[in-house]
Measured scan of single mutants.
Amino acid sequence: PTIVLKVSPEELKALEKAGVEIEKIEKNEDGELYITLTPEALKKAGFE
């Protein structure tokens, strides 16, 4: 199962800087950012 999270541009930068593997980055028509994370990326980021 993949996880989709709504993030701010600042959060996205912080995640990328931390080396979190982001599978997909999407922006909706309201300009909101959503990222898709794999279970492996979540484990690496410390989420179980």
Rank of each mutant, 00 (worst) to 15 (best):
P1M: 13
P1W: 08
P1C: 15
P1K: 13
P1H: 11
P1D: 10
T2N: 15
T2M: 14
T2R: 10
T2C: 14
T2F: 14
T2W: 11
I3K: 06
I3N: 05
V4M: 09
V4K: 13
V4L: 08
V4Y: 06
V4Q: 09
V4F: 06
V4P: 03
L5G: 01
L5P: 00
L5T: 05
K6H: 12
K6M: 12
K6I: 08
K6W: 08
K6D: 01
K6A: 07
V7Y: 01
V7A: 02
V7I: 10
V7T: 04
S8M: 07
S8G: 08
S8A: 05
S8Y: 05
P9N: 08
P9I: 14
P9M: 08
P9R: 09
E10L: 14
E10V: 11
E10M: 12
E10Q: 12
E10Y: 05
E10F: 07
E10G: 09
E11C: 15
E11F: 15
E11A: 14
E11T: 15
E11G: 12
E11I: 14
E11R: 14
L12C: 04
K13N: 10
K13R: 12
K13C: 14
K13T: 08
A14Y: 15
A14R: 15
A14E: 14
A14T: 14
A14K: 15
A14D: 05
L15I: 14
L15S: 00
L15A: 03
L15H: 01
E16M: 13
E16H: 08
E16Q: 12
E16T: 10
E16W: 08
K17T: 09
K17H: 08
K17W: 07
K17D: 10
K17S: 12
K17I: 12
A18N: 11
A18M: 15
A18V: 05
A18L: 15
A18C: 15
A18F: 10
G19S: 06
G19N: 08
G19C: 07
G19L: 05
G19Q: 06
G19T: 02
G19I: 01
V20D: 00
V20H: 01
V20N: 01
V20P: 00
V20S: 02
E21F: 07
E21H: 07
E21Y: 06
E21Q: 08
E21S: 07
E21I: 06
I22D: 00
I22W: 08
I22F: 09
I22A: 02
I22L: 06
I22E: 00
E23H: 11
E23K: 07
E23M: 07
E23W: 07
E23R: 08
K24D: 05
K24W: 10
I25P: 01
I25M: 07
I25R: 04
I25T: 06
I25A: 04
E26I: 10
E26K: 04
E26V: 11
E26A: 08
E26S: 09
E26Y: 13
E26F: 12
E26R: 07
E26N: 07
K27D: 05
K27I: 13
K27H: 09
K27G: 08
N28E: 05
N28P: 03
E29A: 12
E29C: 06
E29H: 10
E29R: 12
E29T: 10
E29Y: 11
D30G: 10
D30K: 11
D30H: 12
D30V: 12
D30W: 15
G31M: 03
G31S: 03
G31P: 01
G31Q: 03
G31W: 02
E32V: 07
E32F: 13
L33V: 14
L33G: 01
L33A: 06
Y34R: 11
Y34N: 06
Y34L: 13
Y34S: 07
I35E: 00
I35K: 00
I35A: 04
T36G: 02
T36Y: 14
T36P: 01
L37A: 09
L37R: 00
L37M: 12
T38Y: 02
T38G: 06
T38Q: 04
T38E: 05
T38F: 03
T38W: 02
P39W: 15
P39F: 15
P39Q: 13
E40Q: 05
E40M: 03
E40F: 01
E40P: 05
E40V: 03
A41C: 04
A41I: 03
A41E: 15
A41G: 07
A41V: 03
A41P: 01
L42K: 05
L42Y: 15
L42M: 14
L42E: 04
K43S: 15
K43P: 02
K43W: 04
K44V: 02
K44I: 02
K44R: 02
K44E: 10
K44A: 02
A45G: 11
A45P: 06
A45T: 03
A45S: 08
A45Y: 04
A45L: 14
A45K: 03
A45D: 04
G46T: 01
G46M: 03
G46C: 13
G46L: 03
F47Q: 13
F47M: 15
F47Y: 06
F47I: 15
F47R: 14
E48N: 02
E48C: 04
E48P: 15
E48G: 05
E48L: 05
